[in-house]
Amino acid sequence: MSQCVSRLSLAAAIAVAGLLGACSKGASTAADTQGVEKVNAYINCFNAVEEPIHQGFQQYTGWMKDADAGPTGKETQVRGPGTVLSHRVDACNAPMVAALAMTPAEPDLDPAAREYQKTFVELYALIEQADRYYSREDYLRDDRSGMRIQHAPLMQAYAAFFAAGSALDAALEKREDERRAAQLKEIEAAEGRSLAYYQLRIVGDGKRLTQLLSADAPDVALARTELAAFQALLQQAQDDKVGQGDAMWGHVERSADGLARDAGRRIERVQENKPLTRGEQMLLQSGGRASLPQGSAEALMASYNDLVDMANRMTRVSGAR
């Protein structure tokens, strides 16, 4: 496990689980409400810690010549894994424990969520210990033995956590896809292709397009077909004049247009077989939306997350009316 694989997870997008409940015109049951609360707790935990844990892993292993072998003790620049903001850590503690106990059970989801919470707690205890060790520069006083002693257990815990993260991400996405398909059918039967229908459909189709173009070697021909279908969906929503006069829907449309634009840039970059330059890689590491290279998978993901954010905001505003 010499390098953490950079996964462009779409679990953040599943925050639209709240949208699933809000879009439906039917009465919801207590079980439905608890089901949404349970899934949202899983999503909140995943979204809170997944990215900072991956970043900390890169920070910790980045100065090692061979992360599998671990520190030699001769390195001149060393760094600990860093910690995670407390409110993010908290999202994976009491709320997750409570959600796991909620009924009805989710047999396809609960085991993955339970393993994720367990591996996070175990990993984070080691991360805090290692980060204190490096922050205090204890390695200068123990002949760097602590670096070597802590490394193997820490890497094993990282491996377990990353595996659990992949499993939870897949389980959440599968559940979301199934719920979205069922709800789209329900909304279309009850209301036709209403604003709620397009809101849910655009996010779902945007997710599929983003997943396709986030692969290591995207199928360009298929991606062009998916992008054309996505653009046709946006045009159809305009032709149907949904959301006229709704300022929030205007934000959703602009975010969807941005996703279409960045998907096109991504396709062009892949078509040209144009890897990131060293300068662009450095920009990626610096963080920030403005620094994401055009045509990169990261820029596309940022656009998709913006679409999800706008759709969720619209749902919250609509629910407050």
Rank of each mutant, 00 (worst) to 15 (best):
N93Y: 06
L154N: 01
S255V: 05
G146V: 10
K207I: 00
M102W: 06
R289K: 11
D309E: 12
L85V: 14
Q117L: 03
A69L: 13
A190H: 03
T277N: 08
P275I: 02
A91L: 04
P218Y: 02
R193H: 09
M1C: 05
A237I: 10
R193Q: 10
A113M: 11
F120Q: 02
D32K: 01
R313K: 13
S24E: 09
Y158F: 15
A30T: 11
V121K: 13
G206T: 04
L140Y: 15
S135P: 00
A228D: 15
E75G: 05
L227K: 09
L300N: 02
L276V: 03
S214K: 10
A171T: 09
D131N: 15
L307V: 01
A22I: 01
Q58F: 06
L154R: 03
L109T: 11
K174Y: 03
D177Y: 06
A167G: 02
L209R: 01
G206V: 07
E272I: 06
G18D: 13
T277L: 08
P95W: 11
E186F: 12
D32H: 05
V36E: 03
E280F: 05
V84S: 04
N47M: 08
L284I: 12
P52C: 05
E122T: 12
G26A: 14
G287K: 08
K65W: 08
K207W: 00
K38E: 06
H251W: 03
A247Y: 09
S145K: 15
A105Q: 10
G62C: 01
L168V: 07
A31Y: 00
C4H: 03
C45M: 10
A130E: 05
A299H: 05
L259N: 03
